[in-house]
Amino acid sequence: VGDQVLEIVPSNEEQIKNLLQLEAQEHLQLDFWKSPTTPGETAHVRVPFVNVQAVKVFLESQGIAYSIMIED
């Protein structure tokens, strides 16, 4: 199991704000291929294997929908 690319769908401005804060966490080494800008629009982010669980827990705790787009 390696890195994953998640497709994330924020449903409101609050969730977009939370994702932008997540993007700013440099220690997570997230690679946003497509940043969140509009509710209902997908964002794509590559998550290093060591941080996959932490990111998924965060998304679930914020009620942000996501799916695994690419499993490496």
Score class of each variant (00 low, 15 high):
60 E>K: 05
70 I>D: 12
25 Q>R: 08
58 F>P: 00
7 E>W: 10
26 E>H: 13
23 E>C: 13
60 E>A: 05
55 V>Y: 02
59 L>M: 03
25 Q>N: 14
57 V>I: 12
15 Q>W: 01
21 Q>E: 12
67 S>I: 12
39 P>C: 04
37 T>F: 08
6 L>W: 10
35 S>L: 15
72 D>R: 07
56 K>W: 03
36 P>D: 03
46 R>E: 03
4 Q>V: 15
70 I>G: 13
4 Q>C: 15
36 P>H: 02
5 V>T: 08
65 A>C: 09
50 V>F: 09
35 S>D: 05
14 E>Q: 08
37 T>H: 06
27 H>Q: 08
53 Q>Y: 08
24 A>L: 11
39 P>S: 04
20 L>H: 06
47 V>C: 03
57 V>N: 12
41 E>G: 05
5 V>D: 04
25 Q>H: 07
19 L>D: 00
16 I>N: 01
19 L>S: 01
67 S>R: 09
6 L>S: 01
40 G>C: 08
41 E>Y: 06
71 E>Q: 14
53 Q>M: 11
53 Q>F: 08
38 T>P: 02
48 P>T: 04
72 D>C: 15
35 S>I: 14
67 S>Q: 09
34 K>V: 09
3 D>F: 14
54 A>H: 09
44 H>S: 09
33 W>Q: 11
56 K>Y: 07
63 G>S: 06
48 P>N: 06
70 I>W: 13
60 E>W: 03
50 V>R: 07
22 L>Y: 06
45 V>I: 10
30 L>Y: 02
5 V>E: 05
51 N>K: 07
34 K>S: 07
39 P>N: 03
28 L>I: 07
30 L>E: 01
46 R>Q: 06
69 M>C: 13
29 Q>R: 09
52 V>M: 10
2 G>K: 05
64 I>M: 06
5 V>Q: 04
18 N>G: 12
63 G>M: 06
25 Q>E: 08
20 L>Y: 08
32 F>Q: 02
53 Q>C: 11
26 E>M: 12
48 P>I: 04
28 L>G: 04
71 E>M: 07
32 F>H: 02
31 D>I: 14
71 E>N: 12
68 I>P: 04
51 N>S: 11
38 T>I: 13
69 M>K: 07
55 V>H: 00
62 Q>E: 07
42 T>C: 10
3 D>N: 09
63 G>V: 02
48 P>Q: 06
45 V>S: 02
32 F>A: 02
19 L>N: 00
12 N>R: 02
32 F>K: 02
27 H>G: 10
2 G>D: 07
24 A>R: 11
28 L>D: 02
1 V>I: 07
63 G>F: 04
59 L>V: 01
57 V>D: 15
70 I>A: 11
54 A>E: 11
48 P>L: 04
18 N>E: 11
52 V>A: 06
26 E>W: 13
66 Y>H: 03
19 L>K: 00
54 A>I: 12
41 E>M: 08
23 E>D: 08
56 K>P: 00
3 D>R: 06
3 D>P: 05
59 L>G: 00
50 V>T: 09
56 K>I: 15
7 E>M: 13
19 L>C: 03
46 R>A: 07
25 Q>Y: 09
69 M>D: 03
63 G>L: 06
64 I>D: 00
58 F>T: 03
3 D>S: 13
30 L>H: 01
17 K>S: 08
37 T>I: 09
58 F>N: 01
34 K>P: 07
38 T>M: 10
67 S>P: 01
43 A>V: 15
11 S>Y: 09
59 L>P: 00
7 E>I: 13
22 L>W: 10
52 V>L: 14
9 V>P: 00
14 E>S: 08
5 V>F: 10
59 L>Y: 01
18 N>W: 15
34 K>F: 06
32 F>M: 04
3 D>V: 11
14 E>F: 06
9 V>E: 04
13 E>Y: 14
52 V>W: 10
26 E>Y: 14
46 R>D: 02
36 P>Y: 02
48 P>D: 05
17 K>D: 06
8 I>G: 01
31 D>Q: 15
60 E>V: 05
13 E>Q: 10
62 Q>D: 02
68 I>R: 03
31 D>R: 12
43 A>E: 01
69 M>R: 05
48 P>A: 06
50 V>C: 13
61 S>C: 09
47 V>D: 00
61 S>R: 08
36 P>T: 06
40 G>H: 06
31 D>K: 14
30 L>K: 01
26 E>D: 10
43 A>S: 09
39 P>W: 03
13 E>S: 07
41 E>F: 06
31 D>P: 02
72 D>S: 14
40 G>W: 06
5 V>C: 15
20 L>F: 10
13 E>A: 10
61 S>D: 08
35 S>C: 14
19 L>G: 00
54 A>P: 04
67 S>V: 08
70 I>H: 11
39 P>I: 09
50 V>H: 14
50 V>W: 13
3 D>C: 15
70 I>P: 12
45 V>T: 01
37 T>L: 12
21 Q>T: 10
69 M>H: 11
1 V>H: 15
68 I>T: 07
39 P>Y: 04
51 N>L: 08
8 I>D: 01
66 Y>Q: 00
